[in-house]
C-alpha cells in the first residue's frame, strides 16, 4: 500500500516538471522582450530594466530555469511587480475564500449529481432520464458568468432574497457566510453537476449491463440493493476520476465566479494580476493551481485501491 502511494507520488514528478517547464517557457518563448510586454505600454526604460533584472532575463535560458526551479523548491514563487510582496504571501492572504468556495461546490455538486445520475441510469430511456440529460447539457452550455448574473438578477435584484456579492468567512459570521456563498456555489457547481451527473449515469448504465448484475438478480436481490450495493460501487472508479478531472474546470470557474460575485479569493488575484500585467503572480498562481490539481488527482488514484480491490499498482 505505502509502496504504491510512494510510486504514485513519484510518478507525478515528471508531470510537475513539465508543468513548470511550460509555465517557464510561456514567458520566455513569446515573441519580443517579455520585460517590455510585462512592463506595459507606458513603461520607462528604467522600469523595463528593473523587471529584466528581477526575472533574471539577461541570463542564459537553462540557467534561468534552474535558478527558478531552485527557488520554487525552496517555496519561493517570486515577488509581485505591482505590490512588491512575495507571491506566497499574496496567496496566503487570498486562500481561504477560494478553498471554502471550492469545498462547498464539490460537496453540493456530488450530493446532487450522484443520486441524479444513478436515478437517470436506472430509468434509462424514460422521461426522468431525458429530463436529467437535458439539465446536464444545459449546465454544460451555460457560461459560469452568464449563470451567475442570471441568478443575481433573479434572487438578488428581483426577489431580494440574497446579497448580490461579497464574502463572509464561515469562521466569523456563519449566517452571513451561508447567505453569500449560496449563489456562487450554485453558479460554480452547475457545470460540475452536469459533468458528474453524466459520468455517473454512463458508468452506472454500463455496469447495469454486466453479468454480475444479472447474478445479483438471479439470487433474488431487490432492485434498490442491486443499484446501490452492486452497481454504484462498481461505477465508483470512473466517477471518482471525473470528480478529480473536473477540479480543473472548477479552478477555471472559480476565477470567473469570484469576479462575478466580488469574492476576494485567488481567482480575483489572478484577474487583478492580469490587469496589472503582474507576471510573477500569474506564473506563481498557475503553478500553484496546477500542482494542487495534480495532487488531488494523485489522492484520487490512491483512493481507487479502496474503491476497487483489483487495483494494485
Amino acid at each position: 500500500m505505502w509502496f504504491f502511494v510512494l510510486k504514485r507520488a513519484a510518478s507525478t514528478l515528471p508531470v510537475m516538471l513539465v508543468v513548470a517547464l511550460v509555465v517557464f517557457l510561456m514567458l520566455r518563448l513569446t515573441p519580443g522582450d517579455p520585460a517590455v510586454v510585462i512592463a506595459g505600454d507606458q513603461a520607462t526604460a528604467e522600469q523595463i530594466a528593473r523587471i529584466r533584472a528581477t526575472l533574471g532575463l539577461d541570463l542564459p535560458l537553462h540557467v534561468q530555469f534552474l535558478t527558478w526551479m531552485g527557488q520554487i523548491l525552496k517555496g519561493d514563487l517570486g515577488v509581485s511587480i505591482f505590490s512588491n510582496l512575495p507571491v506566497t504571501t499574496l496567496i496566503g492572504q487570498r486562500l481561504e475564500p477560494t478553498l471554502v468556495l471550492t469545498a462547498t461546490t464539490i460537496v453540493f455538486s456530488v450530493l446532487v449529481a450522484v443520486p441524479l445520475g444513478v436515478l437517470a441510469a436506472w430509468k434509462a430511456g424514460g422521461w426522468v432520464d431525458r429530463l436529467v440529460m437535458v439539465f446536464s447539457v444545459v449546465g454544460f452550455s451555460f457560461p459560469v458568468f452568464v449563470l451567475g448574473y442570471l441568478l443575481i438578477y433573479k434572487f438578488s435584484l428581483d426577489l431580494k432574497w440574497l446579497p448580490t456579492q461579497g464574502y463572509r468567512s464561515p469562521f466569523t459570521d456563519f449566517q452571513g457566510f451561508l447567505r453569500t456563498i449560496t449563489l456562487p456555489t450554485i453558479t460554480l457547481g452547475a457545470i460540475y453537476v452536469a459533468l458528474v451527473t453524466r459520468i455517473t449515469r454512463a458508468s452506472v448504465l454500463e455496469v447495469l449491463g454486466e453479468d454480475y448484475i444479472r447474478t445479483a438478480r438471479a439470487k433474488g436481490q431487490n432492485e434498490r440493493k442491486v443499484l446501490f450495493r452492486h452497481a454504484l460501487k462498481n461505477a465508483a472508479v470512473p466517477i471518482a476520476t471525473v470528480i478529480g478531472i473536473g477540479v480543473a474546470l472548477l479552478i477555471g470557474g472559480a476565477v470567473v465566479t469570484e469576479t462575478v460575485f466580488n469574492i476576494p479569493g485567488l481567482g480575483r488575484l489572478v484577474v487583478d494580476a492580469i490587469l496589472r500585467r503582474d507576471y510573477p503572480v500569474i506564473q506563481g498562481l498557475i503553478l500553484v493551481f496546477s500542482f494542487t490539481y495534480i495532487l488531488i488527482n494523485m489522492l484520487i488514484d490512491v483512493a481507487y485501491t479502496v474503491l476497487d480491490p483489483r487495483i494494485r499498482y
Binding site: 510537475m16 516538471l17 513539465v18 508543468v19 511550460v22 509555465v23 477555471g252 493551481f289 496546477s290
Partner: peptide
Amino acid sequence: GLMSIPGILLAI
C-alpha cells in the same frame, strides 16, 4: 503536463 494546467489559466 499540459492537461494538468487548468485550460483557462493556461490560456490566460
